[in-house]
Design a protein around this nucleic acid. Structure first.
Length: 504
RNA sequence: CGGGGCGUAGCGCAGCCUGGUAGCGCGCCUGCCUUGGGCGCAGGAGGCCCCCGGUUCAAAUCCGGGCGCCCCGACCA
């Protein structure tokens, strides 16, 4: 996708909307306020007139579209097809699965009037679509020959949250929900793990975000699931964010909605189902993992604009020669499949534009002035190293290759930096004292007996929740940690280590 | 729902205690000048002071009642 300048009929100078004069609060000073202001000033999103709702602005949506593209490719490659189920679901559906209704009742939005008339049965705005999909599957699935069913939908869902924050938790949010039905437990379990791997691969290779894939505790799992897996990431303030989930639903929904098939022996069987989702919350993860005190830092493979050209000139003569060179450069970069934007805005100083594009997280900036044009070169600045330090001169002819390489380098360095940060702020805690210390500003990786009582006590006393039992225990800290040991809370034997942390 | 903060120009705020012409910075518009890290000068536009009621000759300001938003907790992708 190429971002082009707006059409000729629309050359009005854009407002300095969002780019206030002052700097952002630093992350150290006030991480939460840093985040809020960054989202607004980078023009990713804005507050809607309804409390807890969000408007995703063009730049934020372009980022989401790139996330969608990267995921959708992976879903298709693993055999899934996209579908669209309705927003409105009969309220009775949600009540059919016991745990599901317990989990979701408190946060349902209910429609009771339609066309001015009280409805015979209230409708809910979908908080997720397991129920209505289960209902339809019971009609569509009859034989083992109909299986597996591999579906995904891109939509928005509504959950009436008490406390909201842009991207991280809003009443309505955008996501994808995948739903699959299988003949056997093994096949469904395999699908659940496969999609967790897809999310992990996406996070690492597209967003440059290192994640810990693992299993959730009973208390933290999805309402209605037998097993919930998630990918957990560490934000810049040391807190955890669940960045994607994959659920093994067993036969819970198949039984509640009568999703059955005849197997090869003529026996009637319930299906085994899965669901998995990743939401616009992931944008919050990108902001909080990579962002710095200058603003947003976007991972190159997802950035709506990968390289921005800022032309520099003093007079009309310089302007025409610089712009001519800039346009040629832009065409060259576009040809090399770099998403490039030429900032031709009048009345803004180059210095102002530098700050503006840094706020908006563009990975690479190309500065092109008369001196550069004279020697057929340009200054290259990389966003992950802000200020004058990260600048180098490069010849125009080399730029398409050089920028391509630089983008890859930035991706790698963002990932490595985030991984090093996470490891530096994760402590393998053996005692409860060490544990408490660790979750003050990061993760504790600690032996846990698996009981809900210990988990609840820990949460009550430290505000830290169980994030997951990592599937790959050695990857958490990048070295083998002895398994087993005594539960960090009760001292009983622990089978695995679990990651604990304060979470968003 | 508990605790805290705040509603005055597009944004950020002052004014309120002690009632009397509604102000400042940024942004916006016009022109000139500038442009290699957030240029400058001059002129200009822009207000249901959150809403409703009360006190008063007079309310942004005092009193009563609402509503909304943000932050911190309990619940959650």
């Amino acid at each position: 996708m190429i971002i082009t300048e707006r059409g000729a009929g629309c050359q009005r100078r854009p407002a300095r909307d969002g780019m206030a004069d002052e700097k952002l609060p630093t992350r150290k000073e006030d991480f939460s306020e840093w985040y809020n202001q960054l989202v607004l000033r980078a023009q990713l999103a804005d507050y809607a007139p309804v409390r807890g709702c969000m408007i995703v602005r063009p730049y934020g949506w372009a980022l989401w579209e790139n996330i969608q593209g990267a995921l959708d490719r992976r879903f298709k490659a693993t055999g899934h097809q996209n579908v669209a189920f309705p927003l409105l679901i009969p309220k009775s559906f949600i009540e059919k699965e016991k745990h599901h209704v317990e989990g979701f009742s408190p946060e349902l939005a209910v429609v009771t009037i339609g066309g001015g008339e009280e409805l015979a049965e209230p409708l809910i705005l979908r908080p997720t679509s397991e129920t209505i999909i289960g209902h339809m599957w019971s009609k569509w699935i009859q034989s083992y020959r109909d299986l597996p069913v591999l579906m995904n939908q891109w939509n928005s869902v509504v959950r009436w949250e008490l406390r909201t924050k842009l991207f991280l938790r809003t009443l309505e949010f955008y996501w994808q929900e995948g739903h699959t039905a299988h003949a056997t437990r093994e096949e469904a379990a395999e699908e659940t793990r496969q999609m967790l791997e897809v999310y992990t691969d996406f996070a690492v290779n597209e967003a440059a975000i290192p994640v810990i894939p693992g299993a959730k505790s009973e208390a933290e799992k999805f309402a209605g699931a037998d097993i919930t897996y998630s990918i957990e990431a560490m934000m810049g303030d040391g807190k955890a964010l669940q960045a994607g989930t994959s659920h093994f639903l067993g036969q819970n929904f198949a039984q509640a909605f009568d999703v059955k098939y005849l197997d090869q022996n003529g026996a009637l069987q319930h299906c085994w189902t899965t669901s998995w989702g990743l939401s616009t919350r992931f944008i919050g993860a990108i902001i909080m993992v990579h962002g710095d005190d200058q603003g947003l830092v976007l991972p190159p493979r997802l950035a709506p604009i990968q390289a921005v050209i800022v032309p520099i000139y003093k007079n009309d003569e310089e302007k025409s020669s610089v712009l001519k060179a800039a346009k040629e450069l832009k065409a060259q970069l576009a040809k090399a499949e770099i998403r490039v934007h030429l900032d031709e805005r009048e009345g803004f100083s180059p210095g102002w534009k530098f700050n503006d594009w840094e706020m908006r997280g563009v990975p690479v900036r190309v500065e092109l002035g008369p001196k550069d044009v004279a020697k057929q070169a340009a200054m290259l600045a990389r966003r992950d190293r802000p200020g004058k330090e990260g600048k180098v001169s490069a010849s125009l002819a080399d730029l398409p290759t050089a920028i391509g390489k630089l983008l890859e380098e930035i991706h790698q360095s963002l990932h490595d930096r985030a991984l090093a940060f996470r490891r530096a702020n994760t402590q393998a805690a053996a005692s409860y004292d060490e544990f408490k210390q660790a979750v003050e500003n990061g993760f504790a990786f600690a032996p846990w007996c698996g009981s809900g009582e210990c988990e609840a006590k820990i949460k009550e006393e430290t505000r830290a929740t169980m994030r997951c039992i990592p599937l790959d225990q050695a990857a958490v800290l990048g070295r083998e940690i002895a398994s087993g040991g005594a539960c960090v809370y009760c001292g009983k034997a622990a089978k695995d280590r679990a990651v604990f942390g304060r979470a968003y």
